[in-house]
Computed example of a mutant assay.
Amino acid sequence: MQNKDQKIIELIELNDELENYFRNTIIPQLFVDANLILRKFTPPAMKQFKLHNKDIGKSITDVKDNFRFPSIVDNIEQVIKTGELLEKEIQTTDMRWYQMNILPYIVKRSKTTNGVIITFIDITLRIRDLKEQEKLIMEHELLLDTISHDIKTPLTSLGLTIEMLKKIPEKGMEKFPLLLEKIENGLVKIKGIIIDLTDSRKSDHHYKTVEELLDIEQILEDVRLTLATQILESGAQIKLDISHSEIVFVRRKLRSIVYNLVNNSIKYRDSGRVPEIIIKTFLEGDYFVISIEDNGRGIAKSDLEKIFAKYVRIATDVEGTGVGLHLVKEIVSISGGKIMVESEIGKGAIFKIYLRNQTLTEQHNLKA
């Protein structure tokens, strides 16, 4: 009798600990049993998902609309059936983004799944920051590209013209040398401004082009979060086949390469089918290769070279600036790599990015 009373006391204490945890945690969490009945939720879940105490005891199917994520029931059933953790990004009724983790609640004695614990981590700010970074990277790279190609060339031509003018006889042109000097001084000042602008990224911490050892899967995760809204709206399925994951490269540049290609795969999807994107990485000779294949509308063979020209847009029925693929090619080419495309109208496209497969040790030796 005493042992029974002791066990009851222990159960009460455990229940109190659980209640205190659920009451005080700042993380939205739900406990759904094996019959899909909502048993508990934390106060943050009440606020974020507009749940009420009267919802406890209801089937999760009756409150699923609160999550703006219709497949949540299917995901819960999948975890109960397989006993495996499931992670996914979802958007809630207040238009915020969450990393949803569905963990199986396993009864140790019987080793069966008796429900799930669902945890939500707010990633709205991270997604917003990643999108803002991608926008800034695009604007920054475009500015540098414009300075490099659209301004430096005419300035060089102007410099040559000045040199020619210097050789013209000065007889009868008393003020000519003074005017020529002013033009030349102005040219020098403009060149100085351009040098300051192009060199600023070396000292600007936000845009510092520091090469480091990167894990491609982390880059892909950032890109996936940045494009979370587009992926959700299009229903795009992204599959990974990562044979090699490490590469030495500039983080923001690698992210920009992958972002632009995956974004295009979603934007230029075929209206008659769900977008499917396969991302592969592997080593080929001295190159680290990133292959991005889609089942989109495809590109005509006659347009394959045009797509990399700045401001050129083959399709005008979707939003775009015509600089994304241009910048991708610039980044790849400057790094000593290459980009290849295979595509046909109606059969999707495969973009293969070849980046020099350089280790940190090799990089150090080259600098030394």
Score class of each variant (00 low, 15 high):
residue 326 H to E: 02
residue 349 A to I: 10
residue 3 N to A: 14
residue 282 F to G: 03
residue 332 V to Q: 03
residue 316 T to L: 08
residue 165 L to R: 01
residue 102 I to K: 06
residue 229 T to A: 10
residue 122 D to E: 09
residue 138 M to D: 13
residue 181 E to C: 03
residue 139 E to L: 12
residue 295 N to Y: 04
residue 139 E to W: 06
residue 219 I to A: 09
residue 309 A to S: 03
residue 287 Y to C: 04
residue 90 I to M: 15
residue 224 R to M: 00
residue 193 I to G: 08
residue 352 K to D: 09
residue 275 P to V: 02
residue 255 R to M: 07
residue 104 P to W: 07
residue 14 L to I: 06
residue 143 L to F: 08
residue 145 D to I: 00
residue 367 K to C: 01
residue 219 I to L: 09
residue 80 I to D: 09
residue 116 V to Y: 09
residue 110 S to C: 01
residue 130 L to G: 07
residue 84 E to D: 05
residue 19 E to Y: 13
residue 263 N to S: 15
residue 99 Q to V: 01
residue 195 I to C: 03
residue 199 D to P: 00
residue 269 R to Q: 15
residue 189 K to D: 13
residue 265 S to M: 08
residue 21 Y to Q: 05
residue 222 D to V: 01
residue 95 M to K: 14
residue 49 F to A: 00
residue 153 T to A: 11
residue 325 L to Y: 05
residue 299 I to K: 01
residue 81 K to M: 10
residue 290 I to G: 04
residue 36 L to Y: 08
residue 258 V to S: 00
residue 367 K to Q: 09
residue 209 T to Q: 14
residue 359 T to G: 08
residue 271 S to P: 08
residue 121 I to R: 11
residue 318 V to R: 13
residue 347 K to H: 14
residue 246 E to P: 01
residue 222 D to T: 09
residue 54 K to F: 13
residue 296 G to Q: 06
residue 23 R to T: 11
residue 15 N to C: 07
residue 305 E to W: 05
residue 264 N to S: 13
residue 132 E to W: 07
residue 71 S to C: 05
residue 226 T to G: 15
residue 60 I to Q: 04
residue 284 E to Y: 10
residue 281 T to R: 06
residue 335 S to I: 02
residue 16 D to K: 15
residue 277 I to Q: 06
residue 218 Q to H: 10
residue 196 D to A: 12
residue 225 L to F: 11
residue 61 T to A: 07
residue 27 I to W: 05
residue 120 F to M: 05
residue 145 D to Q: 07
residue 219 I to T: 14
residue 9 I to N: 08
residue 231 I to E: 02
residue 314 I to P: 02
residue 20 N to Y: 11
residue 222 D to W: 08
residue 300 A to M: 10
residue 72 I to C: 01
residue 331 I to A: 07
residue 272 G to I: 03
residue 32 V to C: 02
residue 196 D to H: 10
residue 367 K to D: 05
residue 303 D to P: 04
residue 254 L to C: 01
residue 132 E to A: 11
residue 264 N to P: 04
residue 210 V to W: 00
residue 253 K to F: 11
residue 188 V to D: 12
residue 116 V to L: 07
residue 245 S to M: 03
residue 49 F to P: 01
residue 89 E to P: 14
residue 220 L to M: 12
residue 284 E to M: 06
residue 53 N to P: 00
residue 360 L to G: 00
residue 34 A to F: 11
residue 53 N to Q: 12
residue 169 P to E: 04
residue 133 Q to T: 06
residue 224 R to C: 01
residue 117 I to P: 07
residue 123 I to N: 03
residue 340 M to V: 14
residue 214 L to Q: 08
